[in-house]
Design a protein around this nucleic acid. Structure first.
Lengths: 264, 264
DNA sequence: AACGTTGACGTCAGTAAG
DNA sequence: CTTACTGACGTCAACGTT
């Protein structure tokens, strides 16, 4: 009927490559949609008064059971659509919440790492002070020890460098992520929200491939990869807390002087 | 018209408290919707053949400019809707990707922390070995040093304990997060994705509070009804990254022996 | 085949910005 | 006032499941 023609024949331009409703622009231009689906003349079969004289009143009373059948189908589909929407909404609410929590956790982990590094610096410094204690045995011992430490530092530095590189690739700079995320596009006064605030966040993701879902549609999932590897779920691993706290202590240059010590 | 009546009068049962389309069940039960919006008789104004004899053919040719006006409105709204959907889709694609990346980063941070703790253990152990180096000056020095270290450990332990408590409150157990996220509900091979670009810009407001977004579904949730709660979803339970890796090293008991040293 | 699920669309209703 | 944006809905088409 009329609304359908306006609904479907038009607007082909805004279509951005959806997979779902494929043809439907070609077929079913006017009232030929009867073939597409077993029941679609549900409009009571009376809508030829467009402007040209009608030509098909004959199927006006198509078959009551046919109509009823379609009616039931639409009813069910309507409910299904509602359910689907609800489900999707829940899913993204969860995702959003998890995201916030992950960001928070992440900043805590960074703080923890910062703190541990500071602690290590302190310990190493103190250890070095024993290099001057005169005793040759101790000096020898320290020499070995320092070698070990230095080796570990190098390994750690390498590790750190590697992960920093990955961060660069990721979206630390913001290249990958176009949108900045703050809240989903629209915002409703619905509240809900956890009032969490904290948000801190920072920390950068890492490449990975990830998803591609739709919206009024959604998921896709893409790529084999992502799905599994990521882990996720309720981020159970929370562990660690630790406030930002104390010394800045540059993360990297800390132990370089130890290397010089190797010569002794 | 017919479709509308079936469309709106029915299905009130699956409604679970949406904010947006509020009344519309009360008003506009049949064909009284003409008042609601300036133009909505766009159905060509001919659909009274329901069953009762029609009563309003008079406005069949309403006003061509009125119709054109509505037509233009619909066109624009259609485009706007498409743009909005696209934007939302992009937003959630980003969110999803960031989530994956955050999870990965997180497991890396956990590994790093584990490693740093091991390093600290090693350093402290080595430091302790100097307690037996005979020299009284060194012994004295070590005494002070150990006090410092112990104090730091206590502080760290307190911090750790505190954060663990927080975690318990948080969602460690998984109480907060109902759904487990695995991938968005549905999955399609659609592709498309980036191509469009143009419109986006998807900003995102920043209410800080986050959440509470809509869907094509709605905000409130609640719904006692069966629909959503089922969780359904594919809950794959990905388990978290965070490889087990090297030394178990209990997080806490590591340095206790240092306390005993204080007595020396 | 009948059915559930879901991406995409067009529409309506409401809000906010111009 | 108009206009863009967006939450929600009903529908269609396709896919999956039974």
């Amino acid at each position: 009927m009329n609304p359908n023609i306006t609904r479907y024949s038009r607007n082909a331009h805004v279509r951005n490559g959806q997979p779902t409703p494929p043809p439907y622009d070609d077929k079913r231009n006017f009232q030929n949609m009867q073939v597409a689906y077993p029941m679609q003349s549900y409009q009571e079969q009376q809508q030829q008064q467009q402007s040209p004289p009608s030509q098909q009143q004959l199927l006006a009373p198509p078959q009551n059971d046919e109509r009823a059948k379609r009616e039931r189908f639409l009813e069910r589909n309507r409910v299904a659509a509602s359910k689907c929407r609800q489900k999707k909404k829940m899913f993204y609410e969860n995702l959003n919440q998890q995201h916030s929590e992950l960001e928070e956790l992440n900043s805590k982990l960074h703080s923890e790492i910062e703190h541990l590094r500071g602690e290590i610096l302190t310990l190493k410094t103190q250890l070095l002070q024993h290099g001057e204690c005169g005793d040759p045995a101790i000096t020898l011992h320290l020499s070995h020890m320092v070698k070990n430490i230095t080796a570990m530092d190098h390994a750690a530095a390498d590790r750190r460098r590697a992960s920093q590189t990955m961060d660069m690739l990721g979206l630390g700079g913001g290249s990958t992520l176009a949108g900045t995320r703050s809240s989903p596009p629209g915002l409703s006064p619905s509240s809900t929200a956890t009032a969490s605030s904290s948000g801190s966040g920072h920390c950068a993701p890492l490449p990975t491939v990830s998803i591609g879902f739709g919206f009024d549609a959604m998921p896709i999932v893409a790529t084999n990869t992502t799905t599994t590897n990521s882990s996720s779920d309720q981020l159970v691993n929370k562990t660690i807390g630790d406030e930002p706290l104390n010394g800045p202590l540059d993360p990297m240059p800390e132990y370089e002087f130890l290397e010089e010590l190797l010569d002794m």
